[in-house]
Amino acid sequence: MDTPTYDIAISGAGPAGSALALALARKSPRPRRIALVGPRFAVSRGPATEPNAAIDPRTLALNHGSRVLLEQLAAWPSASADIATVHVSQRGRLGRTLIRHDELEVPRLGSVVGYDDLLSSLHRALLDSGVALIEASPTLTLAAGQVELDLGASRIRSALAVQSDGIRPQGIERQYRQDAVLATVRSARPRPGWAFERFTRNGPLAILPHPHGDDLYGVVWCCPPAEAGRIRALDDKDFAEALYGMFGSRLGRFQPVGDRHVFPLSMHAGPSLINARCVAIGNAAQTLHPVAGQGLNLGLRDVAQLTHVLAPWLARPEADPAGLLAQFARQRRPDRWLTAGITDFLPRVFATGNPLVDHAGGLALLTLDILPALRDPLARHLLQGLRN
């Protein structure tokens, strides 16, 4: 039996890999020559109506640039919650910063969507894209002038391959000794369009508007593993009191909704260029601390840049792609490392427990709030990354 051959094989059908398949299909004269390989394709009838009905507890904060890309791909979920203002503060210290969408001249800073909702929207769009969808967990090997993907019971070949998830990046690693407690809560005094990032000595606490209710908020509470286990085990009343004590009264009292989940936090980053015919994007290139919600946003910028670089090659896939893949890796390097550096620095510097560092952090937040010339470049990077 002949081994099927494709121009591009994408390993990993998560958000980044699925978005890349859609974007490349729009540029390719032969979308059927693009294969997306993943363990399953999640196509549901629509968004979950209750937070605890979702299979995956995660919500995702996508910035304005990511939303524009997904809308262009006709893959934006039907349920989302806009972020117009971000409130950044430090518990127990003076100083705070407000980042507003109108100051940056964008309709919104970002939006929050459910992970499952986004994945279902992407996979529904793929059904009409012409891309070959293959359910498998592949292993990649470089053959003579091609990449081979072992699917277990069969094999496929491609001229080039993209690893988008399923492997951990090899290179730089940091263990934060923090876990993230994920929860959904109902607020007694909701503030539509507001998101909050609060730095504490145990780690950052994010409270984000939820796509399934104006009074609902997604909580990402980062703290040491033992504390995370304790918080997860609290009954609803005690959890609501603990969250109120850590966050304050800006949203009133909280009422927990659904289950709580705990995920360990670490940073891993490796090269984008794996070899002459294979590149890594998204979680296969970098996994970040969730502070500022930059992980998938950075992965979608990988998608946009790789699509731009490969567009001419798709018309002539017999050409050697090595130079283009090297170009992609070179162009993505500054944005990747600056974003990784910011998300690595913030949760560590605010959690030192050193009073001098705490006061300096509060002063920095106050300075950013007073001086737009200092605040806006950081805000724009978090909004859209470094542009080439």
Results as ranks from 00 to 15, higher is better:
Ser120Gly: 13
His210Gln: 11
Ile342Ser: 04
Val86Trp: 00
Gly245Ile: 03
Asp320Glu: 13
Phe328Pro: 03
Gly252Val: 13
Ser187Tyr: 00
Ala228Thr: 04
Leu118Asp: 09
Arg260Lys: 08
Arg332Ile: 08
Ile207Ala: 11
Arg330Gln: 14
Phe345Arg: 07
Pro169Gly: 13
Arg96Gly: 11
Gly95His: 08
Ile172Gly: 02
Pro321His: 10
Lys27Cys: 05
Ala233Trp: 01
Leu160Trp: 04
Pro225Leu: 13
Ala125Pro: 02
Phe239Glu: 04
Trp221Val: 09
Ile83Pro: 06
Ala183Glu: 07
Ala240Glu: 11
Pro169Ile: 13
Ala284Ile: 05
Leu386Arg: 10
His101Asp: 14
Arg155Ala: 14
Ala329Val: 03
Leu368His: 07
Pro317Trp: 10
Gly252Glu: 14
Gly341Val: 05
Ile274Asp: 07
Pro192Leu: 12
Asp82Tyr: 05
Gly193Ala: 09
Gly361Thr: 02
Gln384Ala: 15
Ser80Cys: 11
His359Asn: 09
Gln305His: 06
Thr3Met: 11
Arg174His: 12
Phe41His: 04
Leu234Met: 15
Gly282Leu: 02
Glu318Asn: 03
Leu382Thr: 01
Val131Gln: 00
Arg157Trp: 05
Cys222Leu: 07
Arg157Pro: 00
Ser158Gly: 05
Ala132Glu: 13
Thr49Asp: 15
Asp128Met: 01
Ala35Gln: 05
Arg387Asn: 12
Gln163Arg: 12
Ser28Arg: 09
His87Pro: 00
Arg26Glu: 09
Ala75Leu: 01
Ala195Lys: 01
Leu94Pro: 01
Pro15Lys: 07
Ile99His: 01
Arg348Phe: 07
Pro192His: 09
Arg375Lys: 15
Arg332Asp: 12
Val181Ser: 04
Leu243Ser: 03
Tyr217Gln: 05
Val220Trp: 02
Trp194Val: 10
Ala61Ser: 12
Glu135Gln: 08
Val219Lys: 07
Leu20Asp: 01
Asp369Trp: 04
Asp214His: 09
Asp344Thr: 05
Pro138Tyr: 09
Arg108Trp: 14
Pro77Cys: 15
Pro204Ala: 08
Leu346Ser: 01
Gln331Tyr: 06
Ser266Lys: 09
Arg177Gly: 15
Arg67Lys: 12
Ala311Gln: 12
Val162Lys: 06
Ile55Arg: 13
Leu98Asp: 07
Ser120Arg: 06
Gly166Val: 04
Arg26Tyr: 02
Thr5Glu: 13
Asp82Thr: 11
Pro211Asn: 14
Val220Glu: 06
Leu126Trp: 02
Asn52Gln: 15
Gln175Met: 10
Trp76Ser: 12
Ser121Asp: 11
Leu62His: 10
Glu71Asp: 14
Phe247Pro: 00
Leu371Thr: 07
Asp376Val: 10
Leu20Gly: 02
Leu300Met: 07
Gly245Phe: 04
Leu346Glu: 01
Ser120Pro: 02
Asn388Val: 03
Pro4Ile: 11
Arg67His: 09
Gly110Ala: 09
Asp128Trp: 00
Ala340Tyr: 00
Ala311Gly: 03
Arg168Gln: 14
Gly299Cys: 02
Cys278Met: 15
Pro57Lys: 11
Asn388Lys: 04
Asn354Trp: 13
Gln90Ser: 10
Glu173Ala: 13
Arg230Gly: 08
Asn275Trp: 03
Gly323Val: 05
Ile134Val: 12
Leu119Trp: 04
Ser28Ile: 06
Ala159Ser: 14
Gly362Met: 08
Glu71Phe: 06
Asp320Pro: 02
Leu265His: 10
Leu133Ala: 09
Val279Tyr: 08
Gln163Leu: 13
Arg93Gln: 15
Ala54Trp: 03
